[in-house]
Write a protein that binds this DNA or RNA. Structure first.
Lengths: 337, 337
DNA sequence: CGACATTATGACACCGGTGTCAGGTTCGGA
DNA sequence: TCCGAACCTGACACCGGTGTCATAATGTCG
């Protein structure tokens, strides 16, 4: 397998390598005849430009980094799927980088990542999307970035989110319409901006429908299955027991379901349970969880696409989009008896 | 932020850039004094070598590709974790590439991936690990690769696996010791070599303990939750109903559990259920699934580490390792009544 | 038809490293 | 003390592309 370089193409086609380069990049000022000729040679020799050489010349790596610190494998996978789709369309590579939000070294860790891998841009996924320290750092260093599923909208960056507050509102409303008036709520991880948004949606729904808010029905979770177990215990021990539980994500909701089942409670007859995210587990357990589906792949793909555009030609205008979330009703919620 | 290149370091340290390069690569034939001097300048200027330039000069990309076509997000994530660990230790990047085993274009898709991204090597994860067509292609093209969790051991490549057959043996034996004699089995995806291995382990356990094999107790699944539901239906409809079900992975086991619960069967009192893989769902449902834990991260990390070593200096000797799997007993299996 | 603008093309340096090789220095042994 | 071997070091080409600029070819308009 002999190597085919721009030089071989050039000499084979009888033009200079600069001209080949022009054809490669769809630059103007190449006559149609020449362009045709070079394109034909591309095919004949099965030429693929070397992205490394191109990167060196243009001082780019064609690599986008994606950082995350998220316990949900399915969420991560969905993020990756969306990001990969955008990268492949634009001949970029995706470098995944799990890391620890709480780590002492986070910023320097990220800095090193960018330095050593020469990233062209960074995608921030929750909980980094709203991590001010990091965002400010990137801004200072002038490193292009896009934020996925952030809650706090700023003015100057690329950000694609879904409407968590509205989703939480709808699912709470769904429970209220089923006759529930005592709806427990399990909060998510305090570092995630979604946590606050979902809580807000819950409150707004109560408010809108004139259901009294009861502080004792709110538990602090952290999105992990384990925290869901703890919260579930507190909630199921309450007297009177709430007739419904809305957990801020499906893992915690699954934990509530598990504990309830262990205690011989029938779901949804004795208690309704709702989650958030539409993780695979939501339909892998019985009864299936009523939950909120977010367009994670879409969000990420849009964010990365815009990021790459921005890298190609920096744009002043911010790009801020909010996609809608969707209520999915399954068997875990039912009319109160 | 001024750019620090090898040239700045060289002139600042008063040596040639070749000498700087020598220090960078820990080459011999540099006096201690010079080495010290250069290393000090590295620190002072905060120099990071440009991997792209290095790649161009050495005709390498320092990128390892990882291909997969696997429905289990948690498995993929674990593979990534292991692969990333190995890459980071060796200053490599990991390029993830989900793709379709059955796709018409698979081979040319992979070829293009390698061409365009200039991969230095490829990690094959199930079901690609034993996909002869692809392995042969890589061998022909002389592209370094490592196989994770393959069943068919060959002589000439890097391969790290875990003992699926033994794991299946142990979990079946566990059921037999609990008094079960009618143990249904759900097979995995026919393209995965693990499918056959797990079935073999099941058979060997029956055989060893003198339990008669009954063909009617075996269902064809494909590792997906959905296929588990179908198989579960057939199994639960049998008369007499088996007293235990061993599904080839946890998703299918969860499906059996779901269907059994829907039918008012008590698990494990009425029927025991066992899975394989120790996926998160195994402990997120109630009752928790008895299953087999494999060292996925370890396997992958070892495979990638060896692959990178092999790329640095091609070795004749193959590297074949089998790690042990571990039985984890949870609440879904119990003594027969 | 001549002056000038526009388009097409190539020569050459450059991106930031590494490989090759030649020349100078130091060291060990006779 | 002299000589060859081993050790250091730097000059320079090279990896495979892109950017700059000069120049040649073509087109436009008065």
């Amino acid at each position: 397998m002999k190597k085919v370089t721009i030089n071989s193409v050039a000499s084979y086609a009888g033009v200079s390598k600069k001209t080949v380069s022009r054809v490669l990049n769809n630059e103007p000022n190449v006559s149609d005849a020449t362009r045709e000729k070079v394109l034909k040679v591309f095919k004949e020799l099965d030429y693929t430009p070397n992205p490394i050489a191109r990167g060196l010349a243009q001082n780019r790596s064609f690599i986008i980094g994606c950082i995350y610190d998220n316990p949900s494998k399915s969420y991560i996978t969905r993020v990756q799927t969306g990001a990969l789709a955008a990268c492949q369309e634009n001949n970029y590579n995706l470098l995944i980088h799990p890391c620890d939000l709480r780590g002492e070294e986070l910023i320097s860790n990220i800095e090193q990542l960018i330095q050593t891998s020469r990233l062209d841009g960074l995608v921030l996924t929750p909980p980094f999307s709203d991590f001010k320290l990091l965002v400010d750092f990137l801004k200072t260093k002038n490193i292009p970035y896009a934020r996925v599923a952030s809650a706090v909208l700023e003015d100057e960056s690329i950000s694609v989110r879904s409407n968590d507050e509205q989703g939480a509102f709808e699912i709470t409303e769904h429970l209220i319409r089923l006759g529930h008036k005592s709806i427990a709520f399990i909060k998510g991880h305090p570092d995630h901006s979604a946590t606050e948004q979902r809580f807000k949606g819950y409150l707004r729904a109560l408010n809108t429908h004139g259901v009294e808010f009861n502080e004792r029905l709110v538990e602090e979770g952290n999105f992990s299955y384990h925290s869901g177990v703890d919260s579930a215990r507190s909630i199921l021990d309450l007297t009177p027991r709430p007739t419904a539980v809305f957990a801020s994500n499906d893992y915690m909701a699954a934990a509530v379901l598990k504990l309830a089942t262990q205690r011989q409670l029938k779901v949804p007859d004795d208690i309704s349970i709702a989650g958030f995210d539409n993780a695979p587990i939501a339909r892998h357990i019985w009864p299936g969880l009523t939950t909120i589906a977010q367009p994670v792949e879409d969000m990420t793909k849009q964010a990365v696409t815009k990021l790459i555009e921005h890298i190609a030609e920096p744009q002043e205008a911010p790009y801020q989009v909010t996609l809608e979330a969707r209520l999915i009703t399954r068997e875990s919620t039912a009319q109160i008896k």
